[in-house]
Amino acid sequence: MSGLLAITLNARLRPLDRGEIFEDPLQEILDVEAPGSQVCGGGTQMAANGEPSCCDIDVELHGDQEAGLRLVVHTLESIGAPKGSTARLGDREPVSFGVAEGIGLYLNGTDLPEEVYATSDVNELISALQSRLADRGRIFSYWQGPTETALYFYGQSAATIRDLIQPVLAEHPLAQNHRLLSITPRG
Rank of each mutant, 00 (worst) to 15 (best):
R138G: 15
L4P: 02
E20Y: 02
E28F: 02
L133E: 01
Q144N: 13
G109S: 03
N49H: 02
K83S: 10
T149A: 12
S131V: 07
E23Y: 00
E101P: 09
H172R: 09
G102C: 13
L174M: 07
G104Y: 01
Q27E: 15
G137P: 08
E101F: 13
P25H: 03
R12T: 05
V168H: 01
T110C: 05
L26W: 10
D24F: 04
G155K: 03
P167Q: 11
V59I: 05
C54G: 04
T184L: 01
E33G: 01
A170L: 14
T160S: 12
T147W: 00
A118L: 09
L151I: 15
G68F: 03
G43Q: 08
R162V: 12
Y142N: 13
L9Q: 03
N10Y: 09
V72Y: 05
Y154C: 14
R12Y: 00
A118Q: 09
V73G: 03
F153L: 15
A150F: 00
H74E: 15
Q144W: 02
G109F: 08
G98I: 10
D135R: 03
A118D: 14
D64K: 03
S2T: 13
V39I: 10
L133I: 07
D135S: 10
R12N: 09
F153V: 11
C40F: 07
D91F: 13
Q65G: 07
T149L: 03
P146S: 04
G187V: 09
I165N: 04
Q27N: 08
R136G: 10
I79G: 10
G104A: 15
S131H: 04
N49P: 12
A47S: 08
R136S: 14
A47E: 10
R186D: 08
P146G: 05
E115M: 12
D31I: 11
L9I: 08
M1W: 04
A48E: 08
G42M: 09
P146A: 13
A100K: 01
P52R: 07
T75N: 04
R138H: 14
D91H: 06
A134V: 01
Y142G: 11
A67I: 01
L16Y: 06
D56L: 07
L69F: 10
S141K: 04
A118P: 01
Y152S: 08
N123A: 09
N49I: 11
I57N: 00
V73S: 00
L151F: 05
R18T: 10
G109E: 00
F22A: 02
S2M: 07
E60G: 02
F140A: 14
I21Q: 01
